[in-house]
């Protein structure tokens, strides 16, 4: 199979994400908003902040993935680009995976890079910064994959945002639990392995599910 279609679908998705305003600003906005508001809402006692800070960042990550993904496949369906992709010999599930990865690299990856900064604001101990970055990276990827499945399933539904949240949030739970534990306990604990397993599971299951859902949406 030729690599060009997959490469081009990545480039197209990145350009679309940037021009659609879902670029760097959206996740940075979500993260900064959360990081700024939480101390005001809960008081700035250091032990409270370092306790719940990581959890708040997980919340921001989950919401950012949902907001980004809402129109990913819906736009493709309405402008007819989905019809063109479905007729390509390249597997539609691979194209969908590539698109999801493109959106993760635009909206999810910046969060990982910003983690040390926000960790500082939440008084997260410095030695947990690296586990936190790994957890946000893997967790974000998993969120985007499940969010992609939900977005593909609700592509033909007008105002499918609520449906996406309803479908995706239960699938986020295992990742959220083990990701939260990883931030606390670091790489030594089995929580990190379970987080890794949840990401691998999503990588295996989400692409065919997205492919099937998109074929159904085009029909």
């Amino acid at each position: 199979m030729r690599a060009a279609p997959i490469r081009r679908s990545f480039v197209q998705a990145v350009m679309e994400a940037w021009s659609g305003g879902a670029g760097l600003l959206l996740p940075v906005g979500f993260f900064s908003g959360t990081a700024m508001l939480v101390p005001f809402a809960l008081g700035s006692a250091p032990d409270v902040l370092s306790d719940i800070g990581p959890g708040m960042l997980w919340l921001a990550l989950a919401l950012a993935s949902l907001v980004t993904l809402e129109r990913v496949f819906q736009a493709d369906l309405h402008d007819g680009a989905l019809d063109l992709w479905v007729q390509e010999p390249a597997a539609i599930s691979l194209v969908a995976l590539t698109k999801t990865l493109a959106h993760w690299s635009v909206s999810g990856l910046p969060l990982v890079l910003l983690t040390p900064l926000y960790g500082l604001m939440f008084q997260v101990p410095p030695e947990t910064t690296l586990p936190a970055m790994a957890a946000f990276g893997l967790g974000g990827l998993t969120f985007f994959l499940w969010g992609g499945v939900a977005a593909a399933l609700s592509a033909s539904v007008a105002r499918g945002g609520l449906l996406i949240a309803l479908l995706a949030l239960p699938l986020y739970l295992p990742t959220l639990i083990f990701g939260g534990l990883t931030v606390k306990t670091g790489f030594e604990d089995s929580a990190f392995l379970f987080l890794l397993a949840s990401t691998l599971f999503a990588l295996g299951v989400a692409p065919p599910a997205m492919g099937a859902a998109l074929r159904l949406a085009a029909d």
Binding site: R7, R8, Q12, M15, D79, D83, L84, E88
Partner: peptide
């Protein structure tokens, strides 16, 4: 009837995209 163009694409980019694919 829906042409398959993305809103952000220019005609040159659209044709270049599919030519490469």
């Amino acid at each position: 009837h829906n042409n398959g163009l993305k809103a952000h694409e220019t005609p040159r980019r659209h044709l270049m995209h599919w030519a490469r694919v």
